[in-house]
Design a protein around this nucleic acid. Structure first.
Lengths: 212, 212
DNA sequence: CCTACCGATCGGTAGG
DNA sequence: CCTACCGATCGGTAGG
């Protein structure tokens, strides 16, 4: 006969993760103390430790949870069987929305993943690689041909740069929302792909590098 | 009669800044101890404190020095009196080169500026704003007209996203160098500008927001 | 330029 | 024997 956890245990834990993510986003993982996490949650430190094993577990749950949601978005969009361009446009929009909803977890993912233990870091980075691969696949289908294929990944990373950098300059209460920016990012990227593709001299040079 | 500093004082100080920048880039500012800085420099901690007043001064010198160099690049390119597009292309290339040379300082600038004291942070951010304004001016000259002017700054920030994000995924020893990427970023951006500009429906909506 | 320390705070846990 | 907490303090280490 198991008495079980408090009915509020899971929601309390979720609130702790949200507070910790906000503090990690503001002050970084090493710059955040468990005392501050406890205080932000309105809990004593021993009570905080009732809900989480240690500081490290907070970072694991925040970063892994975020990358899991991003992977879920990728799978959801992939299952819609869209053509490459609408598929990538859809993924851009859904990612920007996800970043806006989970901006604290997103910053922790981009800046604090280095503080994970190797085994946890490797699991998170594997998720990141699968996400990047899904985007790069769409880019590759939009840019068919073997010579320029070496540029699919770098171009995909430029796209991630535009959307990952948005959280550094967009104001939460501004007139321009994340949802407004998504189609602009997509237009800029798809419009720009044509300009990069048409540069034949470079394509030949890149192909030489790829074959070397 | 002043005995003066050791002739190696300034070079020793530069080496300390370089080592500290590398540690801040790896482990973040709060995650780096002065013991680690001293050890990396092959100095005792008291000797380290002979060259720098405190941990904070290291961060000030690293971030301010980097933004000063970036502003110098802006002024150098501006004085060449190029047309808007070649001017912006030149700035992109020179920035990417500067980031490659000072990637540790660049990461400290982007991630650790929040740990500066308010007065130092404000000075650094003022430099960043002048740099962004110089890029945004070139973007505005490339996209003349009043209706779409509200998008000059967001588009400029997407450009910064592409180049600022490069340090997270480019491998120092890879076949693709930072100098290779600069014209690709420029092609993608200028090619994409046309696609964003041609979207008249959105331009009207953005204009309404700007006038509201 | 060293050892030896300080006030404080770190992440984490004791007894009750 | 579980959970949900408290005031106080653990062993070590931070910047200086």
């Amino acid at each position: 006969m198991v008495r079980g956890r408090s009915p509020t245990y899971d929601s309390q834990r979720e609130q702790i993760l949200a507070q910790a993510a906000a503090l990690f986003a503001q002050r970084g993982y090493p710059g955040t103390s468990m005392n501050e996490v406890a205080e932000a949650c309105g809990l004593s430190k021993p009570t905080l430790y009732h809900y989480v094993r240690d500081k490290h577990e907070l970072l694991v749950l925040i970063t892994q949870g975020h990358i899991d949601r991003l992977e879920a978005v990728v799978h959801e969009v992939t299952q819609q069987n869209l053509a490459p361009e609408p598929r990538l446009r859809r993924m851009i929009l859904r990612f920007v929305e996800e970043y806006a909803d989970a901006k604290n977890a997103h910053r922790a993912l981009t800046e604090d993943v280095r503080f994970l233990e190797p085994i946890d870091r490797e699991r998170v980075l594997a998720g990141e690689r699968r996400v990047v691969a899904a985007f790069a696949d769409a880019v590759a289908e939009i840019r068919p041909g073997t010579a320029a294929a070496a540029m699919d990944k770098p171009l995909t990373m430029l796209l991630f740069g535009m959307i990952n950098w948005m959280f550094t300059w967009m104001r939460p209460g501004g007139t321009l929302t994340h949802a407004d920016m998504a189609p602009i990012v997509a237009d800029l990227f798809f419009g720009g792909l044509g300009a990069v593709r048409l540069n034949r001299k470079r394509t030949r040079r890149i192909a030489r590098v790829a074959l070397a």
